[in-house]
Amino acid sequence: MSVFPGSQSQQQQQAHIPSAEKLSISPTTSKENRRRRSSSIISHVEPETIEIKNDQEVLPNLNANWVHFKGAWLVHIVIIALLRIFYNLFPVFTKEISWTLTNVTYVIGSYIMFHQVKGTPFEFNSGAYDNLTMWEQIDNGDQYTPVKKFLMGVPIALFLISTHYSNYDIQLFILNFTLCLVAVIPKLPISHRVRITIPFISEPQMIK
């Protein structure tokens, strides 16, 4: 009794089918399909499967889409101005130091927000974005988009301003320049989906 033309080996197949009570099929998920962490120092997040891509497209990614609003662009400038005013309130900080501190705060803050935290705070896509940083979620990973150009420009401009107002003190310059690199390098297309694990310091990164 053939089931369907082309399924000649049905009798052989059925030898492997377990009975209804005894499945003997667990565990069904193999380790290859599962989420895993990288064991190497530098690794890449693996491309999504078709199922994950589907889930990503079910709803717009509210976690990343707000960066397109004009207000979200303006708020970077406002935050920098507020930071500058805040550090100015302390008489102990000279002009040089307070500009450098502004730069430090902005760069570290934006690093945590764009490159450190992964996933989305709200659950709309069944965890389809869990392995991606916010920078990687913006514009679905497209590069050189207007918002990415703007966000790249802000730390560079801030660096130029802060090094200018710190009167080119060599130590402050080195600090500011390092911070600028911290802000710029993760934003480069070459760093897209790259994960770096520092042995004994940071946990292995999820790459799948």
Binding site: M1, V3, F4, Q13, P18, S19, A20, L23, I25, T28
Partner: peptide, 28 residues
């Protein structure tokens, strides 16, 4: 008759995986 129908590893599952479940008809 087979011990059971369908399930993991069966012919039917292979048809479903390919999206061809409509073509599958188990006469037994």
């Amino acid at each position: 008759l087979p011990a059971s129908y369908g399930g993991i590893g069966s012919n039917m599952e292979k048809f479903v995986e390919k999206g061809l479940e409509e073509n599958y008809f188990d006469e037994e």
